[in-house]
């Protein structure tokens, strides 16, 4: 059983994704960044690009994002807050 963690992707208007995931890849300022469960607390700037979430079922969800944002990982909660496009 792979470890899972909670992922939220929010814009000022709506919640794009809220649910569990096994892994996430997001476009950070210095390059794409992979997150797994039990990641250390992290804050990173997010650039426009493609966010990929692997769900516990094994499905891949991809989000093409046109806005900058900020990523926070804290006690197995990953939140991406996107600024206005």
């Amino acid at each position: 059983m792979e470890k899972i963690f909670h992922i939220d992707i929010l814009t000022p208007q709506e919640t794009i994704y809220s649910g569990d995931g096994v892994s996430m890849v997001a476009p950070a300022q210095l390059g794409y960044l992979g997150i797994l469960a039990d990641h250390a607390p992290l804050i990173a700037n997010i650039l426009p690009g493609k966010i990929t979430v692997r769900e516990p079922s094994g499905d891949l969800r991809e989000f093409a994002v046109k806005a900058k944002g900020i990523l926070e990982v804290f006690s197995n909660n990953a939140s991406i807050l996107l600024y206005n496009a």
Binding site: L30, P41, I43, I70, Y83
Partner: peptide, 26 residues
Amino acid sequence: TKYLTEPEAGEVVKGLVPKYLFAKMR
């Protein structure tokens, strides 16, 4: 909380403050 930051913390905060003020006013 001790965070890892990317890029370094000062720069993150510098970018974050205006966004936070904007969101608060919004």
